[in-house]
Amino acid sequence: MTTTRATLANSVRALTMHEAHASARALRQRYPSESYRVCLSAALRGVHARVRRCPLPALREQAVAWAECARATGARLDVARKAADALVFSASHDLASLAVPSKLTGTSSYQDAAAAVGARLDARGGWVLTEHDGPTVYALGLRLGDVQPKHAQTWLPVLRQSRPVRLAVIAVTGGDPYVTPGGDVKRKTRGVNVAFEVGAAALDWRAARAEAEQQGRPETAAELQALLADLF
């Protein structure tokens, strides 16, 4: 476990050092609004007030803990790179806890809902908290889509065993009008970008796992898979 943790930490640190400036610049261009930054921080804490930025060393520790959970539960993604992306995303927007950015799937079936949430984002400065029923995500009482299976069927339900994982809509993309070759005016399909607040839950998961190891009974990969099988 120590070797794995050190390897993950080094991978996250190396990727972050290499990509931080470019990634932060891209994020600022995608989400340039100052109100977005402040409101997303507030949304992920469930309050409507200015919040304190989480120190970078603490964010990095949360990123490594999340990466350990994602890897242990068999997430089919580049865990170290995703952890680095989450670290850059969280630090760039002065969040109070580590947040993992992602996109919902299946949004093409809920374009009116995406448009409504996008309008709320524009009107309120940039955030909407969601509700979820398993992998299905709702906002403003409307179904938006689903969490991608690579998250919903691996690390996410395991972390939710520790404490709630907040999910916020951070942007609605697309929706721009265009003219088809036949002369019809249509709109580009809207997508929904979200962020999972995982910092505290990831640290709780790591602490529980360490305690189990000290008691001589660490969770095995088979046990984690059995837990996931029970949840889905």
Rank of each mutant, 00 (worst) to 15 (best):
31 Y>F: 15
33 S>A: 14
33 S>M: 09
33 S>R: 14
37 R>I: 02
37 R>M: 08
39 C>S: 09
39 C>D: 03
39 C>R: 11
40 L>A: 05
41 S>P: 01
44 L>F: 02
46 G>V: 03
49 A>M: 05
52 R>K: 07
53 R>A: 09
55 P>I: 15
59 L>D: 10
61 E>L: 13
62 Q>R: 13
63 A>F: 10
65 A>T: 06
69 C>S: 14
69 C>G: 11
74 G>K: 08
74 G>R: 11
75 A>C: 15
75 A>P: 07
76 R>F: 11
76 R>W: 06
76 R>H: 13
76 R>M: 12
77 L>V: 15
79 V>C: 04
85 D>N: 11
89 F>Q: 07
90 S>W: 05
90 S>P: 10
96 A>I: 01
98 L>G: 04
99 A>D: 06
101 P>D: 08
104 L>Y: 03
105 T>S: 05
106 G>C: 08
107 T>I: 09
109 S>I: 03
112 D>S: 15
114 A>V: 01
115 A>C: 11
117 V>D: 01
118 G>L: 05
120 R>T: 08
123 A>G: 07
124 R>P: 00
126 G>T: 12
129 L>H: 02
130 T>V: 07
133 D>S: 09
134 G>Y: 02
134 G>T: 01
134 G>M: 07
135 P>W: 03
137 V>Y: 04
138 Y>H: 12
140 L>A: 09
143 R>Y: 06
143 R>I: 02
144 L>M: 12
145 G>C: 01
145 G>Q: 00
151 H>C: 06
160 R>C: 04
